[in-house]
Amino acid sequence: MKRKLWIWQCLLLVAIFAFWHVATHPELVPPFVWDNPDRAAFFFGEPVKIFKAIYVWFVGGEIYPHLWVTLQETALAFVIGSALGLGIGLWLGLTPFASALLDPYIKAANAMPRVVLAPIFMVWFGLGIWSKVALGVTLVFFIVFFNVYQGVKEVSPVVLNNATMLGATRRQLLRFVYLPSATSWVFSSLHTSVGMAFVGAVVGEYLGSAKGVGYLIHMAEGSFDINTVFAGILVLTVFALVLDFAVSFAERRLLVWRPTQGETQPL
């Protein structure tokens, strides 16, 4: 069943590209929206040319430094944002006064559309990778922070009492009960936060940079090279899928202790 589904999914992909090709290639079908036969290709690009652009990027090796920069920004934003979110989430979760004091500010900071901070980060950190990392951090931080904060509040009081009776000091409770419990919440938000780190990196590159896949897209757009724009989008999509796979893999390795629903399944 699973194998069959996979085949159907591939066929659907092929069909989408076939439709795209037929609908945009000049004079393959009679024009039905625009009078000019080249107009469809101008707006939507042509799959054949897009794949050619991707091919040239990978074979010529031009894409690798850009991908590497985007990957670096994503990874740094994720690690720094998660660490900050974990630390501050634990701190506020365990100190009711500080959390009550900061509550409205955190709500405000979370409600603010953080993409508008990108120009400020560019002024502060320049056009290099750090302005993109900073943008990604602001996106990742809140996801991890809220998860950890909630996780700390919901640590089972029985487990805490049990650890206390087994002789755990307050510091040991933090290390052996709160931290693992909070970490599991970080992992449950892993997909979202890695995705957000990626969004931060690409949007940052798009708004101003000299390297990265977002930069490639921005440059191509400037010269109305729609095929290269689509090529960049496709590369980013595949890249995001690979990241997601890596996250799923890490998740399976690190959360073995967590019960999964329905470990058995019908044949």
Partner: peptide
Amino acid sequence: NRRAGYMFQSEALMPWRSALANVTAGLEF
């Protein structure tokens, strides 16, 4: 009470620790 052991009514094991790591938790502390 450091001289007492307590067995709770509901689930009190740390779910992220294996059975062995749960049993040795007190020694680790």
